[in-house]
């Protein structure tokens, strides 16, 4: 269980979270829903250790291998699609394992024919899928997804939901998924509704 206890975070005069309390179950997908600016991304950044917080406690994250799909794709244009995914894997896995993971992940994101393409030659949706593939292939114990299906058409989204769900059924891990889409949240698993500065529903 990941427990966020009395977490407060503010930027100068802007209060993002005030005594936020959330419990996230292990080995399942939990979506964070809420209006823009309610601090969903900030919460993910705090969990990833990229953002300090003012007060409170986070239990169950320390020492976990974290994979993160950022709100932006954060792909390197001088590397190919395949190299971008391999880049985060090389430090953790042997060469054969990296190749194996890349093959299966390209199948999952349905971009098998685009491994050797330069990033700037891919469409926005394709880039998003590469970034998603990178986060999935890393096999983190905690996976943070910030709007993973942003910019994808409905048909592709639905087929990816299936793929991602099947992937997690095979390799269970704790997933925190930030989204604006209630349908997506409901389909993928449990969800938590975050309102400005406080937790409304869990």
């Amino acid at each position: 269980m990941i427990i966020i206890k009395d977490l407060s975070k503010s930027y100068d005069n802007l209060i993002v979270h005030q005594r936020l309390n959330v419990k996230i179950k292990e080995n399942q997908i939990t979506s964070l829903l809420g209006p823009s600016g309610c601090g969903k991304t900030t919460l993910l950044r705090i969990l990833a250790g990229l953002e300090p917080f003012d007060s409170g406690e986070i239990i169950g994250v320390q020492g976990k291998k974290i994979a993160y799909l950022f709100q932006e794709d954060r792909l390197m244009p001088w590397l190919t699609a395949e190299e971008n995914i391999a880049y985060v894997l090389k430090s953790k896995y042997m060469k054969e394992q990296v190749e194996e993971k890349i093959d299966s992940i390209f199948e999952l994101i349905q971009l098998q024919g685009y491994k050797n393409y330069g990033i700037d030659k891919l469409s926005g949706g394709m880039k998003r899928r590469i970034a998603l593939g990178r986060a999935l292939a890393y096999d983190g114990e905690l996976l943070l997804l910030d709007e993973p299906f942003k910019g994808l058409d409905d048909a592709l989204k639905e087929s990816l939901y299936e793929g991602v769900k099947a992937y997690f059924a095979q390799k269970p891990c704790t997933v925190i998924n930030v989204t604006h889409d209630k349908k997506e949240a409901e389909y993928l698993g449990e969800y938590i509704y975050l309102d400005s500065k406080s937790l409304i529903k869990a």
């Binding site: 950022f70 954060r74 880049y87």
Partner: peptide
Amino acid sequence: SLIELNKVFEVKPVLQIKE
């Protein structure tokens, strides 16, 4: 943003410099 990516995914320093 790539510095943050390296931090989260714990990319080895040699690889960070090279790639």
